[in-house]
Design a binder for these strands. Structure first.
Length: 263
DNA sequence: GTTCTTACA
DNA sequence: TGTAAGAA
């Protein structure tokens, strides 16, 4: 009597495709019990267990090649080592996914700032930010691909926000955020902020002027360089436009009294 | 109707 | 990994 089953029955039993079972055969990790006269692969209980084992090891992240090398005589030590390595891989993957989730949530949260009815000036607490300076250029000169290409070597361009720190002398430092100590540190401080969308760079100069006028009209003393942050990811939401946030540190009143001047 | 092999996206 | 085609 025949206790063996066909490939499709095995596939259905184990919840995999017949293609995958043939693939395992090709890689010599799972052979049929025998081949029938009609060339059909036939599988017995032994193969069912073996397939279950292969699938478990695959699930744990082992390659088919690794399984092939270890499935026949895996010593308990080898098996523990494989499983420990698998745990390491899984933890790395969890970390990667966790960072990806955080990034996605951040993008959504930032997007909300721009999704309001109309952009507005507001005072925000800025976290201390370490910046790594990429290059300097003239603040009046626009950015273009050539300018970028001439710089070397690009940091994680467009994977993180880009900071344009506009200095008093008309120079502009183009920076990215740095996790470690950078070249330039934006201290934690209250800032006058203005998020906006821009289609061309001519707008930016205007925005800065407007912000200075606004601060003046509200008697807000500003201090330090204008910082323009290009929100790399938010262009996902607004094709052909770039999302910027302009921020200038607010000079606190007691500070102003000490310095005896505003900006 | 099912499976086989082979090729291809 | 899935899908397709023609043959058995």
């Amino acid at each position: 009597m025949k206790n063996e089953i066909t490939i499709s029955e095995l596939a259905r039993l184990m919840g995999v495709s017949t293609h995958q079972i043939r693939y395992f055969e090709d890689k010599e990790v799972l052979l049929p019990a025998y081949t029938d006269t009609n060339q059909y692969r036939m599988y017995g209980l032994e193969q069912v267990y073996r397939l279950a084992q292969i699938l478990l090891l695959r699930k744990l992240g082992l390659s088919v090649q690794t399984i092939k090398e270890s499935i026949d005589g895996p010593s308990p030590e080898q098996m523990s080592q494989l499983l420990r390595a698998s745990v390491d891989n899984l933890e790395a993957e969890i970390k990667r996914l966790d960072e990806l989730r955080r990034l996605t949530v951040n993008i959504l949260e930032e997007q909300r700032e721009y999704a309001g009815p109309s952009p507005a000036y507001r005072i925000k607490q800025r976290k201390a930010t370490e910046l790594k300076c990429w290059f300097h250029t003239d603040a009046r000169r626009g950015m273009d691909a050539m300018l970028l290409a001439k710089q070397s070597p690009p940091p994680d361009l467009f994977e993180s926000d880009i900071y344009f720190v506009i200095e008093d002398n008309g120079k502009m430092a183009v920076c990215t955020e740095s996790k470690t100590e950078g070249d330039l540190m934006l201290p934690e401080s209250r800032c006058l902020c203005y998020p906006f969308l821009a289609e061309d760079e001519g707008e930016i100069e205007l925005r800065i002027q407007h912000m200075l006028q606004y601060a003046d009209s509200q008697s807000i003393a500003l201090n330090g360089p204008a910082v323009l942050v290009e929100k790399s990811y938010l262009s996902l939401f607004s094709p052909n436009k770039l999302n910027y946030e302009l921020m200038i540190e607010v000079q606190e009143k007691d500070e102003a009294a000490q310095n005896g001047e505003g900006v």
